[in-house]
Amino acid sequence: MQIFVKTLTGKTITLEVEPSDTIENVKAKIQDKEGIPPDQQRLIFAGKQLEDGRTLSDYNIQKESTLHLVLR
Rank of each mutant, 00 (worst) to 15 (best):
M1T: 11
Q2C: 02
I3E: 00
I3G: 00
F4W: 11
F4C: 02
V5C: 02
T7H: 15
T7K: 06
L8N: 12
L8A: 06
T9L: 14
G10K: 03
G10E: 12
G10N: 14
G10L: 09
G10C: 03
K11T: 09
I13K: 01
V17K: 00
E18M: 09
P19G: 11
S20W: 08
S20R: 11
D21Y: 06
T22D: 12
T22H: 07
I23N: 01
I23T: 10
I23V: 15
V26K: 00
V26D: 00
K27I: 15
K27P: 00
K27N: 04
K27G: 02
K27Q: 11
K27W: 08
A28M: 05
K29Y: 05
K29C: 02
Q31V: 15
Q31P: 03
K33S: 14
K33E: 09
G35W: 09
P37Q: 15
P37W: 13
P38V: 08
P38T: 14
P38D: 15
D39E: 08
D39W: 07
Q41R: 03
R42H: 08
I44V: 06
I44M: 05
F45D: 04
A46G: 11
A46L: 06
G47Q: 14
K48A: 13
K48P: 02
K48Q: 11
Q49K: 06
L50D: 00
L50Y: 01
E51D: 09
E51M: 03
G53F: 15
G53L: 11
G53Q: 12
R54T: 10
R54D: 05
T55M: 12
T55I: 14
L56R: 00
S57C: 02
S57R: 08
D58A: 05
Y59H: 03
Y59P: 00
Y59S: 06
N60S: 14
N60I: 07
I61M: 09
Q62A: 13
K63T: 11
K63V: 04
K63Y: 12
K63I: 14
E64I: 05
S65C: 02
S65G: 10
S65I: 04
T66M: 09
T66K: 03
H68K: 14
H68Y: 15
H68A: 14
V70M: 09
V70D: 08
L71K: 10
L71F: 07
